[in-house]
């Protein structure tokens, strides 16, 4: 009961703290005492990091130009890279909008907007600290701040195929991942030291 009151109190306080600032171009500064505690934020990011290093996420966020395939995260067969589109070979050449009614294993997973992120948005080979700084920096996330990043995780269709492509899903559920992002964002996006 006490915990619930505390929770409601924090919620109310957060709602109060979310009043728009006087300058609309300024990012709202959330007073530290009203966010999720730093330790919880760091713990949440630890789970986030685990997910980014799992094949379903890392395979499309590789270090190099080639997306990766399978749970072994080996380079995509057939010489496919993020630059294949320049020679007419689209991701959508093979990755179509919807899986077939009775899917065979090892069909290319499907989504209407199959694509790769920008080259700087790779996860592969990053330490937890490096990735944290990367995700907390809007210049490296396609201009997304923490809330927008959370929204991306919550709603991006392609991202969500990770949990239903017939392949090994990430280590936590989609809903749990969204909660981790919310907590991390609410903690102000703390990062571990090296």
């Amino acid at each position: 009961m006490a915990n619930r009151l505390l929770f409601l109190g924090i919620l109310a306080a957060t709602a109060w703290a979310a009043d728009p600032p006087t300058d609309p171009t300024e990012t709202p500064v959330v007073p530290p005492e009203l966010t999720v505690p730093e330790a919880e934020g760091l713990a949440a990011f630890s789970d986030i990091y685990r997910v980014t290093q799992s094949p379903r996420c890392m395979n499309c966020h590789p270090a190099g130009d080639a997306p990766l395939q399978t749970d072994l995260s080996i380079p995509h067969s057939m010489g496919v890279t993020r630059n294949s589109v320049y020679v007419g070979l689209m991701c959508s050449t093979c990755h179509r909008s919807k899986g077939l009614g009775h899917t065979l294993p090892h069909l290319p997973p499907a989504d209407p907007h199959w694509r790769m992120p920008d080259a700087i948005q790779g996860f592969q080979g990053r330490t937890e600290a490096e990735l944290c700084r990367q995700l907390a920096d809007p210049e490296q996330t396609g201009d997304r701040n923490l809330d927008a990043l959370t929204e991306h995780v919550r709603t991006d269709h392609l991202l969500m195929t990770s949990w239903h492509s017939g392949r090994t899903p990430p280590p936590i559920s989609h809903g749990a991942l969204v909660k981790r992002f919310e907590a991390w964002a609410a903690a102000g996006g703390p990062c571990p030291s090296e």
Partner: peptide, 21 residues
Amino acid sequence: IALLRFKPDPTDDDIDAAMSG
């Protein structure tokens, strides 16, 4: 045909990239 539409002057690497499927 698709390759040449996108890249009228393809290099060997371009051909590899477009045709290895």
